[in-house]
């Protein structure tokens, strides 16, 4: 507990759970892609789906996906900005009793590749990203993350981890397709990796796709 948990952050209103958390989940998607997507669908669950317009959750999510900061005053105009930049977007309600009431599933496309991120705004602006492209995880946005799709062969993971000079905080694994021999790993790190490390990782023969997501806040 610190004074800074009580005073601040500087943010766009009106609600830390319905606005700030939504901006941050949206920004996770922006950082995953490294830029804004070509198209995006937001599936809103529970309280998000019932109250999103009165809380500006729609504008917050879009602003985040466009890469805006927590206190960017353009968030208010994000719908207009998204339209003017040619980003196709849609909001839709979805029922799911299993997940946190303030959950959004963001399905987006960039250069023909589909991405699917599930996140919950769990209060006070804190977030929990709990599924990325089919891999279950629990990411709070405060640590750098590497998402890697690799060949599902013996030794692949150790080759990847060996390249990292930084301590791994958490590791999430999932086999994606047994026939195509693909698997995915989400590697949560204590510190940001160097550019060189990321380049070397991309060059590994076992690495098929690699995304680096810097910390969100």
């Amino acid at each position: 507990m610190s004074i800074l948990d009580v005073v601040g952050p500087v943010m766009i209103g009106p609600s830390s759970s319905h606005t700030l958390g939504a901006i941050r989940i949206g920004r996770f998607v922006n950082r995953l892609l490294g830029e804004k997507p070509d198209s995006v669908v937001f599936y809103l669950c529970g309280s998000f789906s019932k109250t999103y317009k009165g809380h500006g959750t729609d504008r917050a999510l879009l602003g985040g996906v466009l890469g805006m900061a927590d206190d960017d005053e353009n968030i208010k105009k994000s719908i207009e900005i998204a339209s003017s930049t040619g980003l196709a977007f849609r909001f839709s309600a979805f029922e799911n009793e299993e997940v946190h009431p303030n959950t959004v599933r963001i399905e987006c496309q960039k250069n023909g590749i589909l991405h699917d991120v599930w996140g919950a705004s769990i209060g006070g602006g804190a977030i929990n990203i709990f599924r990325v492209n089919g891999v279950e995880c629990s990411l709070n946005g405060k640590a750098p993350v590497i998402f890697v799709v690799n060949r599902d062969v013996p030794g692949a993971l150790s080759k990847i981890l060996n390249k990292l000079e930084i301590n791994v905080a958490n590791l999430y694994l999932k086999r994606l397709n047994r026939l195509k021999l693909t698997a995915a790993a989400i590697i949560e790190l204590d510190d940001a990796p160097s550019k060189k490390t990321l380049e070397e990782l991309k060059k590994l023969d076992v690495v098929l796709e690699l995304y680096y997501i810097p910390k969100i806040f």
Partner: peptide, 11 residues
């Protein structure tokens, strides 16, 4: 109105 504020202690 979605303006910029300092949460203190909350929004």
């Amino acid at each position: 109105s979605m303006g910029r504020i300092v949460a203190c202690p909350t929004a």
